[in-house]
């Protein structure tokens, strides 16, 4: 069971307070109609699913109800940090958006 630091509440909290929000930074295409079926299918279904570092969202369900970003290692369950959505985007981009 994880302990997450909620960047909004500013406290470490137990995993039971949170819900998983899926892989982070999958922006919705601005003009879905211009995408072919393959590209739209990628947006709908394809996820990185890495063994290693993964940028993902969690929602502080029983607390502030905010979605935020966690960088977690799926192999070791180590957590590198948690950020608000906008700060997380900056940290993610600073890594080149890579895994």
């Amino acid at each position: 069971m994880f302990v997450f630091f909620c960047p909004h509440c500013g406290e470490n909290r137990e995993e039971e307070e949170f819900g998983y929000g899926g892989e982070a930074f999958i922006p919705r295409p601005a003009t879905p109609e211009t995408l072919n079926d393959d590209a739209w299918g990628d947006y709908l279904f394809m996820r990185k699913n890495p063994k290693g570092w993964h940028w993902e969202m969690w929602s502080h369900n029983t607390g502030c109800r905010k979605f935020f970003v966690v960088k977690r290692n799926t192999a070791t369950n180590a957590i590198a940090g948690s950020w608000t959505l906008s700060d997380g985007r900056k940290a993610y981009d600073a890594e080149g958006g890579a895994t």
């Binding site: 509440c9 307070e17 502080h60 029983t62 607390g63 502030c64």
Partner: peptide, 11 residues
Amino acid sequence: VAGTTLGKSSV
């Protein structure tokens, strides 16, 4: 103030 769990509910 803490928003947290209480059993399978919240508080």
